[in-house]
Protein backbone atom coordinates (compact mmCIF):
# COMPACT_ATOMS: atom_id res chain seq x y z
CA UNK A 1 0.00 0.00 0.00
CA UNK A 2 1.18 3.51 -0.74
CA UNK A 3 0.39 6.56 1.33
CA UNK A 4 0.21 9.67 -0.84
CA UNK A 5 0.24 13.07 0.79
CA UNK A 6 -0.56 15.84 -1.68
CA UNK A 7 -0.02 19.29 -0.17
CA UNK A 8 -2.23 21.22 -2.57
CA UNK A 9 -5.45 20.68 -4.44
CA UNK A 10 -3.63 20.65 -7.80
CA UNK A 11 -1.26 18.02 -6.50
CA UNK A 12 -4.17 15.96 -5.23
CA UNK A 13 -5.82 16.00 -8.65
CA UNK A 14 -2.55 15.02 -10.28
CA UNK A 15 -2.09 12.17 -7.83
CA UNK A 16 -5.64 10.96 -8.37
CA UNK A 17 -5.16 11.12 -12.15
CA UNK A 18 -2.02 9.06 -11.81
CA UNK A 19 -3.57 6.55 -9.38
CA UNK A 20 -7.26 6.36 -10.22
CA UNK A 21 -7.66 3.36 -7.88
CA UNK A 22 -6.17 5.23 -4.93
CA UNK A 23 -8.67 5.81 -2.13
CA UNK A 24 -9.00 9.35 -0.81
CA UNK A 25 -9.02 9.62 2.94
CA UNK A 26 -10.36 12.71 4.65
CA UNK A 27 -11.72 12.30 8.20
CA UNK A 28 -11.09 8.59 7.81
CA UNK A 29 -14.22 7.69 9.76
CA UNK A 30 -15.40 5.40 6.99
CA UNK A 31 -12.11 4.47 5.36
CA UNK A 32 -10.31 3.47 8.54
CA UNK A 33 -13.08 1.15 9.70
CA UNK A 34 -12.77 -0.66 6.39
CA UNK A 35 -9.00 -0.88 6.75
CA UNK A 36 -9.08 -1.96 10.38
CA UNK A 37 -11.50 -4.77 9.61
CA UNK A 38 -9.73 -5.95 6.49
CA UNK A 39 -12.66 -5.10 4.22
CA UNK A 40 -10.58 -3.02 1.92
CA UNK A 41 -6.95 -3.11 0.84
CA UNK A 42 -6.43 -0.35 -1.73
CA UNK A 43 -3.06 -0.03 -3.50
CA UNK A 44 -2.84 3.53 -2.25
CA UNK A 45 -4.41 6.04 0.11
CA UNK A 46 -4.56 9.73 -0.79
CA UNK A 47 -4.54 11.83 2.35
CA UNK A 48 -6.61 14.99 1.88
CA UNK A 49 -5.89 16.39 5.35
CA UNK A 50 -3.05 18.58 4.23
CA UNK A 51 -5.15 20.51 1.73
CA UNK A 52 -6.21 23.52 3.72
CA UNK A 53 -8.94 24.80 1.41
CA UNK A 54 -10.95 21.60 1.85
CA UNK A 55 -11.41 22.55 5.50
CA UNK A 56 -12.75 26.01 4.69
CA UNK A 57 -16.10 27.40 3.74
CA UNK A 58 -17.32 30.70 2.40
CA UNK A 59 -20.53 32.45 1.46
CA UNK A 60 -20.88 33.17 -2.25
CA UNK A 61 -22.55 36.27 -3.65
CA UNK A 62 -25.81 34.45 -4.21
CA UNK A 63 -25.85 33.42 -0.53
CA UNK A 64 -24.83 29.89 -1.34
CA UNK A 65 -22.51 28.25 1.15
CA UNK A 66 -19.51 26.76 -0.55
CA UNK A 67 -18.57 24.09 1.93
CA UNK A 68 -15.11 22.59 1.57
CA UNK A 69 -15.34 18.81 1.26
CA UNK A 70 -13.46 18.10 4.50
CA UNK A 71 -15.09 20.62 6.84
CA UNK A 72 -15.92 18.46 9.85
CA UNK A 73 -19.48 18.19 11.11
CA UNK A 74 -18.56 19.88 14.37
CA UNK A 75 -17.67 23.07 12.47
CA UNK A 76 -20.90 22.93 10.49
CA UNK A 77 -22.95 22.72 13.68
CA UNK A 78 -20.97 25.49 15.30
CA UNK A 79 -20.64 27.97 12.46
CA UNK A 80 -23.40 27.23 9.96
CA UNK A 81 -26.44 26.19 11.97
CA UNK A 82 -28.25 29.40 10.97
CA UNK A 83 -27.58 29.13 7.27
CA UNK A 84 -27.81 25.37 7.00
CA UNK A 85 -30.23 24.29 9.74
CA UNK A 86 -31.19 21.02 8.08
CA UNK A 87 -27.64 19.92 7.51
CA UNK A 88 -26.70 21.01 11.03
CA UNK A 89 -29.49 18.93 12.54
CA UNK A 90 -28.27 15.98 10.52
CA UNK A 91 -24.67 16.68 11.51
CA UNK A 92 -25.59 16.68 15.19
CA UNK A 93 -26.78 13.08 14.84
CA UNK A 94 -23.66 11.77 13.13
CA UNK A 95 -21.83 9.34 15.39
CA UNK A 96 -20.28 11.00 18.40
CA UNK A 97 -18.44 14.24 19.13
CA UNK A 98 -15.18 12.52 18.21
CA UNK A 99 -16.62 11.37 14.88
CA UNK A 100 -18.02 14.84 14.23
CA UNK A 101 -14.59 16.35 14.81
CA UNK A 102 -13.28 14.33 11.86
CA UNK A 103 -16.12 13.20 9.63
CA UNK A 104 -17.10 15.41 6.72
CA UNK A 105 -19.78 15.94 4.13
CA UNK A 106 -17.22 15.19 1.42
CA UNK A 107 -16.63 11.81 3.05
CA UNK A 108 -20.34 11.15 3.39
CA UNK A 109 -20.75 11.89 -0.33
CA UNK A 110 -17.66 9.92 -1.25
CA UNK A 111 -18.98 6.88 0.58
CA UNK A 112 -22.53 7.48 -0.71
CA UNK A 113 -23.99 5.12 1.86
CA UNK A 114 -27.78 5.21 1.73
CA UNK A 115 -27.62 5.74 5.50
CA UNK A 116 -25.45 8.86 5.35
CA UNK A 117 -27.06 11.63 7.34
CA UNK A 118 -25.85 14.49 5.19
CA UNK A 119 -27.70 13.24 2.13
CA UNK A 120 -31.34 13.96 3.02
CA UNK A 121 -30.66 17.60 3.98
CA UNK A 122 -28.52 18.09 0.86
CA UNK A 123 -31.35 16.74 -1.26
CA UNK A 124 -33.89 18.91 0.51
CA UNK A 125 -31.87 22.06 0.09
CA UNK A 126 -30.96 21.40 -3.53
CA UNK A 127 -27.19 21.29 -3.16
CA UNK A 128 -24.62 20.92 -5.91
CA UNK A 129 -21.45 18.86 -5.71
CA UNK A 130 -18.32 20.44 -7.11
CA UNK A 131 -16.22 17.62 -8.52
CA UNK A 132 -12.87 18.13 -10.16
CA UNK A 133 -10.12 16.30 -11.94
CA UNK A 134 -7.11 17.31 -14.00
CA UNK A 135 -9.62 17.38 -16.86
CA UNK A 136 -11.65 20.16 -15.25
CA UNK A 137 -14.46 20.92 -12.86
CA UNK A 138 -18.08 19.72 -12.94
CA UNK A 139 -21.02 20.89 -10.90
CA UNK A 140 -23.19 17.85 -10.23
CA UNK A 141 -26.72 18.54 -9.01
CA UNK A 142 -27.31 16.50 -5.87
CA UNK A 143 -30.28 14.83 -7.55
CA UNK A 144 -27.89 13.25 -10.05
CA UNK A 145 -25.17 12.35 -7.61
CA UNK A 146 -26.32 9.08 -6.06
CA UNK A 147 -26.26 6.18 -8.50
CA UNK A 148 -26.60 3.03 -6.39
CA UNK A 149 -25.74 1.46 -3.07
CA UNK A 150 -22.48 3.18 -2.13
CA UNK A 151 -22.04 4.35 -5.73
CA UNK A 152 -21.88 7.97 -6.80
CA UNK A 153 -21.39 9.95 -9.98
CA UNK A 154 -17.67 10.60 -9.50
CA UNK A 155 -15.26 9.44 -12.19
CA UNK A 156 -12.23 7.46 -11.01
CA UNK A 157 -9.96 10.47 -11.42
CA UNK A 158 -12.31 12.92 -9.73
CA UNK A 159 -12.34 14.33 -6.24
CA UNK A 160 -14.99 16.34 -4.45
CA UNK A 161 -13.75 19.83 -3.80
CA UNK A 162 -16.80 21.42 -2.23
CA UNK A 163 -20.52 21.27 -1.87
CA UNK A 164 -22.60 24.29 -2.78
CA UNK A 165 -25.60 24.58 -0.51
CA UNK A 166 -28.11 27.41 -0.79
CA UNK A 167 -28.53 29.19 2.55
CA UNK A 168 -31.89 28.37 4.03
CA UNK A 169 -34.68 30.76 3.13
CA UNK A 170 -37.20 28.95 5.28
CA UNK A 171 -37.40 26.38 8.03
CA UNK A 172 -35.65 23.06 7.57
CA UNK A 173 -35.86 19.87 9.57
CA UNK A 174 -34.06 16.58 9.76
CA UNK A 175 -35.13 13.57 11.80
CA UNK A 176 -33.81 10.07 12.02
CA UNK A 177 -34.67 6.79 13.64
CA UNK A 178 -32.19 4.79 15.62
CA UNK A 179 -32.66 2.16 18.27
CA UNK A 180 -30.45 4.05 20.66
CA UNK A 181 -30.61 7.66 21.77
CA UNK A 182 -27.15 8.53 20.46
CA UNK A 183 -24.43 7.14 18.21
CA UNK A 184 -26.56 5.22 15.85
CA UNK A 185 -26.70 4.61 12.13
CA UNK A 186 -30.05 5.62 10.72
CA UNK A 187 -32.73 2.97 10.44
CA UNK A 188 -34.30 5.61 8.24
CA UNK A 189 -34.16 9.37 8.08
CA UNK A 190 -35.96 12.25 6.52
CA UNK A 191 -35.29 15.89 5.73
CA UNK A 192 -37.63 18.59 4.60
CA UNK A 193 -36.94 22.18 3.59
CA UNK A 194 -39.42 24.94 2.92
CA UNK A 195 -38.39 27.42 0.27
CA UNK A 196 -40.91 30.24 0.77
CA UNK A 197 -39.48 32.47 -1.96
CA UNK A 198 -40.08 29.86 -4.60
CA UNK A 199 -43.02 28.39 -2.71
CA UNK A 200 -41.28 25.10 -2.95
CA UNK A 201 -40.99 22.19 -0.58
CA UNK A 202 -38.14 19.72 -1.03
CA UNK A 203 -37.44 16.47 0.72
CA UNK A 204 -34.77 13.84 1.23
CA UNK A 205 -35.14 10.25 2.36
CA UNK A 206 -32.25 8.33 3.91
CA UNK A 207 -31.63 4.67 4.62
CA UNK A 208 -34.81 3.48 2.99
CA UNK A 209 -33.79 2.82 -0.60
CA UNK A 210 -30.62 1.82 -2.46
CA UNK A 211 -29.73 5.50 -2.60
CA UNK A 212 -30.79 8.61 -0.75
CA UNK A 213 -33.70 10.03 -2.74
CA UNK A 214 -36.35 12.67 -2.84
CA UNK A 215 -40.05 11.97 -2.34
CA UNK A 216 -41.18 13.76 -5.46
CA UNK A 217 -44.82 12.86 -5.34
CA UNK A 218 -45.03 14.06 -1.78
CA UNK A 219 -43.32 17.30 -2.75
CA UNK A 220 -45.74 17.86 -5.62
CA UNK A 221 -48.69 17.06 -3.43
CA UNK A 222 -47.75 19.50 -0.70
CA UNK A 223 -46.77 22.19 -3.18
CA UNK A 224 -50.16 21.94 -4.78
CA UNK A 225 -51.88 21.74 -1.44
CA UNK A 226 -50.20 24.90 -0.18
CA UNK A 227 -50.83 26.73 -3.42
CA UNK A 228 -54.42 25.77 -3.84
CA UNK A 229 -55.38 26.49 -0.28
CA UNK A 230 -53.54 29.79 -0.35
CA UNK A 231 -51.61 28.89 2.76
CA UNK A 232 -48.39 30.55 1.64
CA UNK A 233 -50.29 33.82 1.60
CA UNK A 234 -52.60 33.30 4.53
CA UNK A 235 -49.99 31.65 6.73
CA UNK A 236 -52.77 29.49 8.07
CA UNK A 237 -52.55 26.21 9.86
CA UNK A 238 -51.62 23.18 7.79
CA UNK A 239 -54.50 20.73 7.77
CA UNK A 240 -53.52 17.55 9.62
CA UNK A 241 -54.93 15.48 6.80
CA UNK A 242 -52.52 17.13 4.37
CA UNK A 243 -49.58 16.40 6.63
CA UNK A 244 -50.74 12.84 6.99
CA UNK A 245 -51.10 12.43 3.23
CA UNK A 246 -47.66 13.93 2.78
CA UNK A 247 -46.30 11.33 5.18
CA UNK A 248 -47.94 8.50 3.32
CA UNK A 249 -46.53 9.72 0.03
CA UNK A 250 -43.05 9.95 1.53
CA UNK A 251 -43.37 6.39 2.79
CA UNK A 252 -44.55 5.38 -0.66
CA UNK A 253 -41.48 6.90 -2.24
CA UNK A 254 -39.19 4.67 -0.22
CA UNK A 255 -37.99 1.23 -1.28
CA UNK A 256 -36.66 -0.13 1.98
CA UNK A 257 -35.32 -3.57 2.79
CA UNK A 258 -35.36 -5.78 5.87
CA UNK A 259 -32.02 -5.83 7.59
CA UNK A 260 -30.50 -6.22 11.00
CA UNK A 261 -31.30 -2.61 11.86
CA UNK A 262 -34.98 -2.72 11.02
CA UNK A 263 -37.71 -4.14 8.86
CA UNK A 264 -38.85 -2.64 5.60
CA UNK A 265 -42.37 -2.26 6.93
CA UNK A 266 -41.20 -0.39 10.01
CA UNK A 267 -39.03 1.90 7.89
CA UNK A 268 -42.03 2.82 5.77
CA UNK A 269 -44.17 3.41 8.81
CA UNK A 270 -41.53 5.50 10.55
CA UNK A 271 -40.91 7.59 7.46
CA UNK A 272 -44.60 8.45 7.28
CA UNK A 273 -44.51 9.58 10.90
CA UNK A 274 -41.26 11.53 10.57
CA UNK A 275 -42.43 13.22 7.37
CA UNK A 276 -45.71 14.25 8.92
CA UNK A 277 -44.08 15.55 12.08
CA UNK A 278 -41.24 17.41 10.41
CA UNK A 279 -43.55 19.00 7.85
CA UNK A 280 -45.72 20.31 10.66
CA UNK A 281 -42.69 21.59 12.56
CA UNK A 282 -41.37 23.45 9.54
CA UNK A 283 -44.76 24.85 8.64
CA UNK A 284 -45.47 25.96 12.20
CA UNK A 285 -42.03 27.53 12.32
CA UNK A 286 -42.69 29.28 9.09
CA UNK A 287 -45.95 30.64 10.42
CA UNK A 288 -44.33 31.74 13.67
CA UNK A 289 -41.43 33.49 11.98
CA UNK A 290 -43.78 34.90 9.38
CA UNK A 291 -45.88 36.42 12.13
CA UNK A 292 -42.80 37.66 13.92
CA UNK A 293 -41.66 39.34 10.72
CA UNK A 294 -45.08 40.84 10.09
Amino acid sequence: MEFLRPATWEEALAVKAQHPSAVPIAGGTDVMVELNFDRRRPDALVDLNRIRELHEWRIEDDDTVRLGASVPYARIIEALHDRLPGLSLGARTVGSPQIRNRGSVGGNLGGASPAGDAHPPLLASGATVEAASVRGTRLIPIDDFYLGVKRNALEPDELIRAVHIPSATGPQQFAKIGTRNAMVIAVCSFAVALHPHTRDVRTGIGSAAPTPRRAREAEEFIRAELDESGLWTSGGELPRAAARRFGELVAGAAAPIDDVRGSAAYRRHALAVLARRTLLWTWNDHRATGRAAA
Partner: peptide, 16 residues
Protein backbone atom coordinates in the same frame (compact mmCIF):
# COMPACT_ATOMS: atom_id res chain seq x y z
CA UNK B 1 -34.21 16.76 22.52
CA UNK B 2 -31.87 14.95 24.86
CA UNK B 3 -34.74 14.36 27.26
CA UNK B 4 -36.96 12.73 24.66
CA UNK B 5 -37.19 9.29 23.09
CA UNK B 6 -34.89 9.35 20.06
CA UNK B 7 -32.66 11.98 21.62
CA UNK B 8 -30.88 14.34 19.24
CA UNK B 9 -32.18 12.29 16.33
CA UNK B 10 -35.03 14.76 16.55
CA UNK B 11 -37.82 12.29 15.92
CA UNK B 12 -40.31 13.85 18.31
CA UNK B 13 -40.91 17.17 20.00
CA UNK B 14 -43.31 15.48 22.37
CA UNK B 15 -45.75 13.95 19.89
CA UNK B 16 -46.75 10.43 20.77
Amino acid sequence: LRELPGGVSNSTHGEG
